[in-house]
Amino acid sequence: MTSEAPSLDPSAGPVELTRQLCDIASVSGDERRIADAVERLLVHAPHLEVIRDGDTVVARTRLGRERRVVIAGHLDTVPINDNLPVRDERDPESGEAIIRGRGTVDMKAGVAVQLALALELDEPAFDLTWVWYDHEEVASELNGLGRALRNNPSLFAGDFAILGEPTNGGIEGGCNGTLRARVTMLGKRAHSARSWMGIDAIHRAAPLLQRLAEYTAETVTVDGLDYREGLNAVRISGGVAGNVIPDRCDIEVNYRFAPSRSADEAVAFVRDFFSDADEVEIVDLAPGARPGLDAELAQALVRAVGAPPRAKVGWTDVSRFSALGIPAVNLGPGDPSLAHADDERVPVAQIERTHLALGRWLTAAA
């Protein structure tokens, strides 16, 4: 810990902790101060063992319970855009109290709920492993949870896992997988005044783009939840100069696939879809996670939350727990459609309800 770590109030509830956490700027790559603050908040709790891995903080109980639950949340945010410090407001339509600012939705309200419960629950029904990690919003190889898993996998043993991603306070099971591919069409350079002597790679890419535009993504039901897939061009590059026929055009494609498909099956689908391309390079790949709702602990959590679960259509780190054979769900305050938006805002009542429901489940005899 450094002397520059800001203070978080251990007596504050989840709402005030949301404000305090959000006002500690922690854009990906700059999580040291918030990780220091979280560590400082926890180290004096007698029921917790606190471990640090870079800017990831792990806190564990050792109560000898039969089952262990892992609960995780990331500390970083996307870049700030004149939306800190947070502001307390009233929603103009509903009139409910909200907190507005970067990180309120993704996902410091969820982290605040977790921190409050980590301090409050010295006699939970399960042994608990709390994880707050860095670098979630950037490239997968930098992810602090993945790094800590590699460095000390035994820390993350458990029977069930919860990720505090925003879900409007409901349960979202599993997640879609994600794949990015660079699809390349090649041509032959020539002076544009003699274009017939060349082959325009951008023109050759047109049928691929048309095929993508006409593609209808599937909705796949997995263990009772509906996952909507997606296949889209997200970036295109090509061209040499204003008077040169281009010899290369690259299309970056993102494929979001249902958790019923393996990573290998997703790769095979994309390669087949673009079988007429000159090159298909897979540049990023992360498998999805099945809903995990058939686990006994998940069913008890659904009852505690009191609302039917939905599918998580984006990718989240529940995938990492699923790969370890640990059923995992997403549960946190905040509207996921506002994640990364400049007008991020979270209802105060939703923070309080999530805190109450999760705390009730963690203390109930399972």
Rank of each mutant, 00 (worst) to 15 (best):
M1I: 13
A5I: 03
P6F: 07
L8C: 09
D9E: 03
P10W: 09
T18V: 01
L21V: 04
L21D: 02
D23C: 11
A25W: 05
A25M: 11
V27E: 15
E31I: 10
E31K: 11
A35T: 04
V38S: 11
E39C: 15
R40E: 01
L41R: 04
V43S: 07
A45R: 11
V50C: 10
I51F: 11
I51Q: 13
D53I: 15
T61V: 06
T61A: 09
L63E: 05
R68A: 12
V69R: 06
G73S: 05
H74W: 06
T77P: 13
P79C: 13
N81F: 10
N83Y: 06
N83W: 06
P85W: 06
P85Q: 06
E89T: 02
R90N: 11
R90F: 13
P92N: 06
E93S: 14
I98Y: 01
I99S: 03
R100P: 01
M107A: 12
K108N: 06
Q114H: 08
L117D: 03
L117W: 02
L119V: 01
L119N: 03
L121W: 07
D122W: 07
E123F: 00
A125L: 11
W130T: 00
D134C: 13
H135D: 14
E137T: 14
L142W: 05
G146T: 10
R147Q: 14
R147V: 14
N151T: 09
P153D: 12
A157M: 11
G164W: 03
G174N: 07
N176M: 09
A181V: 08
A181T: 05
T184A: 12
T184K: 12
M185C: 11
G187R: 05
R189P: 10
R194E: 12
S195E: 13
G198D: 15
I199K: 10
D200H: 15
D200F: 09
A205S: 15
L212C: 07
A213H: 01
A213M: 02
T221E: 15
V222A: 00
D223Q: 13
G224I: 08
L225S: 01
R228T: 01
E229F: 11
L231P: 00
R235V: 10
G242M: 07
V244S: 14
C249P: 01
D250I: 14
E252L: 14
E252W: 14
E252C: 06
V253I: 09
V253M: 02
E265M: 10
V267K: 02
F273S: 03
F274M: 02
S275P: 02
E279L: 13
I282Q: 08
V283F: 10
V283N: 04
D284F: 13
D284G: 12
D284S: 15
A286K: 15
P291H: 09
L293P: 03
D294V: 04
L297Y: 04
L301T: 04
A304H: 05
A304D: 07
P309N: 08
R310I: 01
K312W: 04
K312P: 00
V313S: 06
G314N: 11
W315I: 04
T316K: 09
D317F: 08
S322R: 11
S322I: 03
A323F: 09
A323Y: 07
A323D: 12
I326Y: 01
I326N: 02
P327H: 02
V329I: 14
L331R: 01
P333Q: 06
L338Y: 05
A339P: 00
D342S: 14
D343Q: 10
E344D: 01
E344S: 02
R345A: 14
A357Y: 03
A365E: 15
